[in-house]
Design a protein around this nucleic acid. Structure first.
Lengths: 339, 339
DNA sequence: GGCTCACTGTACAACGTTGCAGGCAGCGAC
DNA sequence: GTCGCTGCCTGCAACGTTGTACAGTGAGCC
């Protein structure tokens, strides 16, 4: 049985409240008393019961992070950054996996488990713009990702349209004209796929390069296998292309794998650009040119904004904010070695 | 302000305890009463306060998982499996990153945050056999990994020696005789590197193949970049080899990258075997032959064993157990396409 | 009629902590 | 001498829940 304030108070011969005062650095305590209490604490190996403290204070010192799955490298790296940012501010992170499933995302929002934490960071894949109002919850929520805009909560995300436009412009500038897309979502307007496709089309239009529907491959999931499968389909379709813009790095890596199986040379025959700047994209063969969406900045900002709400610094008065991280293009071998 | 039992009781015109009884499915309640209470619950949108419940019950419904970092794919996949296993049993998972640093691992063991969860699953990299006794804590702990054996807690791990021996035997069976090792740790006996090296040497010995120290590359960290660097060093050293056994997949992928940069053909010139069976090893080019250490089985078992301790099923009486997951060799292209 | 027993519901205390109000001693000012 | 202040410490109540003890009601049985 763990020691309680009561045990310490008894041993030190003071009241329970005095022990509490010592622990909480209440100023008016005689040095002598403080030492007695500290000795008792040390002797009993007393540690405050956080659950009881939480019950009194209403704060838990933890935040929840809901994301599709950690097996997806992007989310693993995001979780890493979030945990680091949270720890820097003395918070722990509880992780929930939703599989990107709308029903499970809603469940996470409504789960009584939310009471174990002070707020929720949710990276949604299943929710859509129509679900925006469901984000309104009796606790602080910060939304990540690009499924919902102008919702009732703070929102931290990346510049999808601009970044995708920059990626396509980058390929166009290197003389590529037939750019295949992997990872599109049929009919999607909002969402990573929809926004990135829009950026792509904007770049084509600005350069007066015709858009060809045959170059677009849809795949709901963005795992490596989906990238490989899409590329095999593309090759089987016989459509001609000299570049691939995959909507994330895992798709790109799967696609590169399929390209090379088919004996196609990267970047000589086909240039490849990904999105996410995963660690592994630096070590693929060839290394992958990709869009760095500012993952650490997103994590850092999201945690800061959530804590602002939790601590009431940004009271309900402050309207929900939309914050965009800065992106950059990381140039590597898959588009031709630079310099 | 969230509704409490008190509010519900008031609205339903019953005592607070009756509401509690309804919620906890206490059997002797009149249908009529139950309905009244349920209506009040629905009207107020009442959700039980988990913190208060935890304080009463001493249980939190969460477990902690401490691991080096989620950016390492192996740990991300492990965390995924642990979260899934925990969820299946109604538990949530709080993640702490230690960076594999001994001091931070000790901090995790002693942190008052442990009180936010019912037990700890710790995958240590920094702790060593001498630290075994420090695992003795006033809450349930299950150790993962291979830094400490016969410690005071339950321990779930993989068959490192046997798996590594099998990997080397596999290469030997395919006619490889000069097997380079990447990821060794100088002088280590216990620990993934030490054990895997032992398995490797056992296989060599059994086959009467001489052990050559020049083929061993040490690297403390097992990131992709370390694999690439080690391989470049190996190539620069001029030592002759026809196979590589990397002590994890990320090292192997980095090494393959460096091999291919040097124009060496895999598996024709050099066969490569990794360890971990990461998802990405299936999509590298060539795909990577690897040891599947039974990650899901480890996660599943670890969660089960921890919950057994938490629920007191396996009371202190039961001595700490050492549990080993079954491994298998996953044969892919990096050692020559099978069949 | 009095007994037991099964139902149905209530009151109270407790989990370990902290906010609040207040007590008491000592001291300087009037 | 007393008033008011500061410094130090204490007791009580409360956070929201659940376990224990118990009270009342009605049915069934001797």
């Amino acid at each position: 049985m763990a020691a309680t304030l009561h045990d310490v108070a008894h041993l030190a011969g003071v009241s329970i409240k005095t022990v509490s005062n010592v622990i909480n650095d209440y100023p008016h305590i005689r040095v002598q008393t403080r030492e007695k209490v500290e000795a008792a604490i040390a002797e009993l190996g007393y540690r405050p019961n956080l659950t009881a403290r939480n019950l009194r204070s209403g704060r838990t010192g933890a935040i929840s992070l809901a994301l599709p799955e950690l097996s997806l490298s992007y989310f693993a790296e995001l979780a890493d950054s979030v945990i680091v940012a949270a720890e820097r501010r003395g918070m722990t992170v509880l992780i929930e996996q939703t599989g990107g499933d709308r029903a499970r995302e809603l469940e996470v929002l409504r789960s009584p488990r939310r009471q174990l934490t002070d707020g929720l960071l949710i990276s949604a894949l299943g929710l859509g713009q129509d679900d925006a109002l469901l984000l309104e919850q009796p606790y602080p929520v910060v939304l990540l990702g690009e499924r919902i805009f102008d919702g009732p909560t703070d929102h931290v995300t990346m510049r999808n349209v601009e970044a995708a436009r920059a990626a396509t412009e980058y390929l166009l500038a290197r003389g590529r004209r037939r750019i295949a897309i992997i990872g599109a979502h049929e009919g999607e307007v909002i969402g990573s796929a929809g926004l990135r496709l829009r950026g792509h089309r904007e770049a084509l239009e600005a350069a007066a390069v015709p858009f060809d529907q045959d170059l677009i491959r849809c795949t709901a999931l963005w795992h490596r296998s989906n990238g490989a499968t899409s590329m095999r389909e593309l090759l089987a379709s016989g459509v001609r292309f000299d570049a691939v813009f995959a909507f994330n790095d895992t798709l790109a890596l799967g696609a590169m794998r399929a390209l090379q199986e088919a004996g196609i040379r990267i970047p000589y025959d086909v240039a490849v650009v990904g999105f996410d700047n995963l660690d592994e994209s630096l070590y693929s063969l060839p290394s992958l040119t990709t869009v760095d969406p500012g993952r650490e900045e997103i994590a850092e900002t999201a945690v800061r904004v959530l804590l602002d709400r939790i601590e009431g610094k940004a009271d309900p008065v402050v309207p929900p904010r939309e914050i965009f991280a800065e992106f950059s293009i990381v140039e590597r071998e898959s588009t031709g070695v630079p310099g």
